[in-house]
């Protein structure tokens, strides 16, 4: 099974710079690990801001990369399959015209449909309207059931950072493994 949504590039342009991080998603230490999302995001942002000398560009790139990397890392932890031995990966590529973020994580089969429905909704409507609508609905819901607004991070990146999103869903059967694993790859393109 292979499905793509949005603007997903199968062949990346040749990058001039590249950085990748991998980590395990085991649930036992999620609370401790949560803080690492911010640390990793700041590290990636600092690393890439080196290639944009001169203010205010340097600060803007650093801030945008940090926000986006953090949101993507949070999503791998929130929606990744914590029972899977498959590591989550985040990488960032700098090409001639773009910064391209790629995250990949395993996903539980039961969560795939819900996630794809959210993607379809985000891609088909006006993100600005959807953003306000989701927040108003959430504010009207009772505090006890407040799970926050799903997709708010993605909508914020699209609206405030003009980020372009693409997703790839695939199934793999690793050698020696009795079960198939379901993977989702998220690609975010930012014009520089």
């Amino acid at each position: 099974m292979l499905q793509t949504f949005g603007n997903f590039l199968n062949d990346l342009p040749m990058p001039s710079e590249f950085l990748a991080l991998e980590f395990l998603l085991d649930s036992s230490s999620l609370k401790q690990k949560w803080r690492n999302n911010g640390l990793s995001a700041d590290f990636i942002a600092d690393y890439f801001s080196t290639f944009f000398p001169g203010e205010p560009t340097k600060s803007q790139v650093k801030n945008a990369v940090s926000f986006i990397a953090n949101e993507l890392l949070e999503n791998t932890m929130k929606y990744g399959d914590d029972s899977s031995p498959f590591p989550a990966k985040v990488s960032l590529y700098l090409t001639a015209k773009k910064l391209i973020f790629i995250t990949q994580n395993s996903i539980k089969p039961k969560d795939i449909q819900k996630f794809q429905a959210l993607i379809e909704e985000i891609l088909s409507g006006d993100p600005n309207e959807l953003y306000v609508q989701r927040l108003e609905e959430n504010a009207a819901a009772s505090d006890q059931n407040d799970q926050g607004v799903s997709g708010l991070g993605i909508l914020t990146m699209i609206m405030d950072y003009t980020a372009e999103f693409g997703w790839k869903f695939e199934t793999q059967k690793p050698e020696k493994s009795p079960i198939e694993i379901h993977l989702v790859t998220t690609m975010v393109q930012l014009s520089t």
Partner: peptide, 17 residues
């Protein structure tokens, strides 16, 4: 310096209230 989307959600909800 930074506010994640859950934090934006929290502030938005407060502002609507």
């Amino acid at each position: 310096e930074f506010l994640n989307s859950s934090g934006i959600n929290m502030l938005s909800k407060f502002v609507i209230k």
